[in-house]
Design a protein around this nucleic acid. Structure first.
Lengths: 245, 245
DNA sequence: CAGTGGTCTAGACCACTGC
DNA sequence: CAGTGGTCTAGACCACTGC
């Protein structure tokens, strides 16, 4: 059982529960809290940091949901054996790669302002006659093509053109236009590369590709964007930590 | 704005916040709360159901995390436009298929009690010299092979043999042996079928397969099981709802 | 400025676990 | 039986939004 030490700043705008969760997370990643070790009980922890128990619990909940600790009633809280943990987050491939320190580049193949077909209208919950942006892009890393992306975006939020899309990720542009993404429904599967895909991804016809279809919803409940992406399976996979509900 | 009516049973062992969340979920699925509609504010709702505000909030949090509603400070809570929602849960393919009303069958190809290799020892956090069960199975539905599963299970929890595994899912057996799964780290990718895979899955060499590698952790922090599964891409994909943290 | 969700406190009672 | 996490109450103050 390790005695935990945390710095908590009550003047910070960062919520106390989040500061605590981050502090414990750091202690786990630094090794101060070893895999398998037990944490003090939440009542003592709350008292030691001069926090109310609900606030301490909220911090623990955050750690449970991120998969760093497991709790058992009547027993206690344990640090999970370390492993590469990677939550599947509501972000884009562009964000993913940037955060990992890589330098993604994007080639915009086409941007069109078109009538939405039935499937798109259904996915984006748009009325008959609505128009959308249709975007095709290739994303590369270190000059090697990684993903082929086709997106359909509602046209009543921001104007899209080739120039801005080649500089910034689609999600970055939408966020800058005031869109706060809240959730996404997605499906991951596999296909083999057809001739066009093979050419654009510089691989061979028949190569394994990971497919991802996603529709993203913002804080106003609007379906903002839907897309189908294919990734070279030898260069990308989806990692996630699932937590029991 | 819809006036919500819920039945709450204070004598039930089901937590109040969960009863409320379920009640609202039912109202959404039944259409009583239409997609896009606004909910009453949480303080009024709490008062109307004679609940404290924290309890009401906990119910709302549950709905947010399941992707049914979105909230915005200063504005309110909205029902998300309906869509097929399917959380990626901590369950097995066997559970998935059973819950969907299908009849999965399992053919056990082999069960062996072997010395764990380095990769397995690393994944399951086992000491040098540890032994594990190695299981190979084919899962089919309506007689059509769907998935090829190789699992490695620590051997200090329950004895595994061909007979029990052909009757019950691995997870079912482990749960019955007292294992409470809490989280899993998994990676989803794609490959093309090799000769052996093609034969067992009754498909062709070169067909697209979805791959899933998973390590599952229980409430004692033990890595109980690690496995690599491949699925026929024309028969299975992973659907999930991601919620912004 | 009124209305909304977000954070936080200081408790109470309970269910479950392992000895 | 002692120790732990799970649920619940009844408030307070605040930040943000849209008019």
């Amino acid at each position: 059982m390790v005695r935990l030490d945390l710095n908590i700043d009550r003047t910070s705008p960062v919520p106390l529960y989040h500061q605590v969760a981050q502090g414990i997370e750091s202690a786990i990643h630094s090794g101060a809290l070893a895999p398998g070790s037990r944490l003090e009980n939440e009542i003592d922890l709350a008292a030691r940091f001069s926090l109310s128990r609900p606030t301490m619990r909220k911090a623990m909940d955050e750690l449970v949901r991120s998969g760093l600790v497991v709790r058992k009633r009547g027993v206690g809280t344990q640090v999970v054996a370390s492993q590469v943990r990677r939550n599947l987050e509501l972000s884009s491939l562009f964000d993913d790669l940037q955060h990992s320190g890589k330098r993604p580049t994007t080639e915009v193949l086409s941007v069109a302002h078109i009538d939405a077909d039935d499937v798109t209208r259904e996915a984006l919950q748009l009325p008959q006659g609505a128009r959308v942006y249709q975007i095709s892009r290739v994303r590369s890393m270190d000059g090697k093509p990684l993903a082929l992306m086709e997106n359909l975006v509602r046209d009543d939020i921001v104007d899209l053109d080739e120039e801005s899309l080649s500089e910034r990720g689609l999600y970055e542009i939408l966020r800058a236009a005031g869109v706060n993404f809240r959730l996404a429904n997605q499906r991951i599967g596999a296909v083999t590369a057809n001739e066009q895909q093979a050419r654009l991804l510089k691989t061979t016809v028949g190569a394994a590709l990971v497919t991802m279809e996603r529709t993203a919803v913002d804080d106003q409940g609007r379906s903002v964007e839907t897309g189908r992406h294919v990734y070279r399976a030898d260069a990308y996979s989806f990692e996630m930590t699932l937590v029991q509900r």
